[in-house]
Amino acid sequence: MITRDDIVIRKAILHILDTDRGECILSSALLNPGPEMCDFIRNHIYKIISSDDTKKGEFDSEFSPIKSILQTWDESEDSSFIETSQAIANKLYAAMGEGLNIPAADLLFVTFQVEGEIYLALLKMNYKRNYNHDKMYRGNHTFVGLLKKRSLISETSRVPEAVIINLSDFSMRLLEKKYEVNGERVNYLSENFLICHTSSSTRKKLNILMRVINNISNKYNGADLKTKMDIKSTLQKEYVDSRAFDVEEIGNKLFGEKPEEKAEYDEKIEMYDLQYDNFTVINENTAKKLEKQMLVTDGGIEISIPMETYNKGNFEVQTDTTGKITIVIRDIDNVILK
């Protein structure tokens, strides 16, 4: 697992891509960041590579101009670094100009090193509109008013659009958003700028997996609370044991002895092209939804059950012949009212 301190900033340059004002201002000199600026850049890179919102990408070697540019540059040579950054900034500015409401931005073009591997980070730092006070003078009077200004991203927030490229094999991870281009909402970064193929993010894959499983469980198990809890327990154990989800193996564990349910699971998973996927969760917050199960009775009683407690057998669901449910919680040492 990469830590923040593993990231070593090599070189950086900043370009202005102000599509609001029709200005593409390309810097001709490298930044000379001090320790504070290096920390700022390092923190933003770390937030991206440790996020489960990023997607994997693969260049279309035949059509991607960005890959062609990167194959011919010399990252170690300053003039080549600057010229390459300018060429890529021009390509991004053109792609931004084709879309409706794509935010103007500064492009921070950075190379960094982790354990001997060199990466390129394209951090699109979108402008935000804020109000700030402004002092005005008229004769002997001082007026304080509000002035709308544009600002860059803060230290605590995350860059909303970014690309991280491994320069040894050109594999990439990217954060992107859809904007309207020629009347259609598209992922302009991957489709129009990078020209690459992407997979879904880890967070999206987990959401799809859980939605498919829940839909099948609701269809076939109805109000069978215990079966639904057992299914959630299986997913939670899968995460605890490996932090990864083997989609095919999970299907076998949950529905292997139920041919009709397994067939529906396979069909729905294949619709999302996840049938052979095995994805790893990087950030534990992504799997938070697996840690607890909230139950709400028809009488309005809410019970939050940690799956760890359920897995230990301290929680039991009993259903009698009339369909009435009894919930048993064992081994309670203390109860606190909140």
Rank of each mutant, 00 (worst) to 15 (best):
E261V: 02
K258V: 12
P259Y: 13
S233V: 01
V212M: 06
H197S: 08
D230Y: 02
L254R: 01
F255R: 08
D246M: 07
R211Y: 08
E261D: 07
I216G: 05
D246N: 13
L209N: 09
I213A: 09
Q236C: 13
S217C: 02
N215A: 01
F255K: 10
H197I: 02
K226W: 09
K204H: 14
L225Q: 11
Y239S: 02
Y220P: 03
S199R: 00
K253P: 07
D230A: 04
T227R: 12
D230I: 01
I208G: 11
K205I: 08
K219S: 15
I231H: 04
S233D: 13
R243Q: 10
G256R: 08
S242N: 13
L225Y: 09
K219T: 13
K205G: 06
G222I: 08
K205E: 15
D224E: 11
V247E: 07
I216F: 10
E248A: 12
S217N: 04
S199H: 04
S201V: 01
I216S: 04
E261S: 06
E249A: 15
G222T: 09
G256Y: 04
G222Y: 10
C196T: 06
E261P: 00
I250F: 13
L235C: 09
K226L: 13
L225K: 12
I231R: 02
T234V: 13
A223E: 13
L235F: 14
E248N: 06
K232D: 00
K219W: 09
N252I: 06
C196D: 03
K258S: 11
V247R: 00
R203Q: 13
A244C: 11
I216H: 04
A244M: 12
T198P: 11
N221Q: 09
K228E: 06
E260Y: 10
F245P: 00
G256W: 11
L206P: 06
K258R: 14
N221F: 15
C196W: 01
K237W: 00
E261K: 08
K219G: 09
I213C: 06
N207F: 03
H197F: 09
C196Q: 02
Q236N: 15
N218A: 07
S242I: 05
E249Q: 14
T234A: 04
E261F: 05
K232I: 03
E260V: 13
G251S: 10
M210C: 07
E238P: 05
D241Q: 05
S233Q: 03
V212S: 04
L235I: 02
S200Q: 07
V212D: 07
N221R: 10
V240E: 15
S200T: 05
I213Q: 02
